[in-house]
């Protein structure tokens, strides 16, 4: 066929391609707390590209979303500050001074905000609305992760330094019990009327009776069980094993291990994206792994030193749209 007879066809195809509506890019922002770099990486979830770093003072570790969803609150522990960020844009809204905010979490009814001071051995319970300190529990030692009972009446905190779990009555503001639960307990989760506690010095998750703190069973995962998260559909529980560099998926109903993924680099926190992928911070590898659970493969995104907490804001507008709006 002569070339000149092909040209109109090529131009037609090119025109059609240019005129066709482009598929809308997936939107959302990921926030990664770089605990060793005094910054928060902001990542475009659609392209998995870092957009910028928000400077904080010293050591951002964990986060909590305010009950109204308008503020992503990040604890800067040795900076003695809580940074309030707009989860839709990453803009810093304000900073308040709080002693050693390492781990933090709102109660399910939104009434309390608990702030654990890991280095200062204290558990602070605030009135969430006013940020008034209601009670400080000096405690030994290294209060690490926390969970609430679904009715918001009880608070449970792992004590990494003394291998114990403490239960606090939030109505009476008193310690209910303080029991040994294994070796270096870290992540804790309320699940079907039991507490699941990751024992980082072992290869299992302890099942604990929330009434009296007795260990009633063990779920073997892999070495260094560090933290655990329930999937959005409630069907699985994901356990990051720090020493073995793996993530174990448990059946939420039976606690039977279903699958293990190899995520080297010290897997720490994770967050479930709406597209089914799982974003995992790699604490010793300056990166986030974006895991496709179907294939077991993951992409890596460079972030700052010692990435710890991670929060995905899937409804945040894409950077393109933000730029257009500006």
């Amino acid at each position: 066929m002569p070339v000149r007879r092909l040209l109109p066809l090529l131009f037609a195809l090119l025109g059609a391609a240019l005129a066709a509506p482009r598929p809308a890019a997936a939107e959302g922002l990921a926030f990664v707390m770089n605990s060793g770099a005094a910054s928060i990486s902001v990542i475009d979830m659609s392209t998995e590209k870092p957009l910028r770093r928000i400077p904080v003072l010293r050591e951002p570790h964990h986060w909590a979303l305010s009950p109204d969803g308008r503020s992503l609150i990040i604890g800067d522990s040795s900076g003695n500050s809580l940074f309030f960020l707009n989860p839709m844009t990453g803009a810093v809204q304000r900073r308040i001074v709080v002693a050693d905010p390492y781990q933090l979490g709102f109660s399910p009814n939104g009434r309390f905000l608990t702030v654990n001071g890991l280095a200062r051995n204290q558990i602070d319970v605030y009135a969430a609305a006013s940020m008034k300190l209601l009670h400080r529990f000096p405690i030994r030692s290294m209060p690490s992760h926390l969970a609430y009972s679904p009715d918001s009446r009880r608070l449970f905190v792992t004590l990494q330094g003394t291998n114990r779990l403490v239960a606090i009555d939030l109505q009476a503001m008193r310690v209910l019990w303080d029991r040994p639960v294994g070796n270096t307990p870290a992540g804790v989760l309320w699940q079907n009327g039991k507490l699941l506690v990751c024992d980082m010095g072992t290869d299992y998750v302890a099942e604990v009776d929330p009434e009296d703190g007795k260990v009633i069973g063990h779920v073997v995962t892999e070495k260094g069980a560090h933290n655990l998260f329930r999937s959005p559909d409630g069907k699985t529980i994901w356990v990051n094993n720090r020493v073995s560099g793996t993530t174990t998926v448990l059946d939420a109903a039976t606690l039977r291990p279903l699958r293990t993924y190899h995520i080297p680099g010290g897997p720490d926190d994770l967050f479930f994206a709406p597209d089914g992928k799982v974003w995992i911070t790699r604490r010793f590898a300056e990166s986030v792994a974006v895991l496709n659970p179907a294939t077991g493969k993951f992409d890596l995104i460079d972030v700052g030193r010692s990435p710890h907490g991670i929060f995905l804001s899937p409804h945040a507008p894409s950077p393109d749209r933000l730029a257009a709006a500006r």
Partner: peptide
């Protein structure tokens, strides 16, 4: 990524932990 940080991470992951 900083190669020295990665080296420290390797020591942490494969030796110290």
């Amino acid at each position: 990524r900083d190669p020295f940080d990665l080296a420290a991470g390797w020591v942490q992951e494969h030796v110290l932990l």
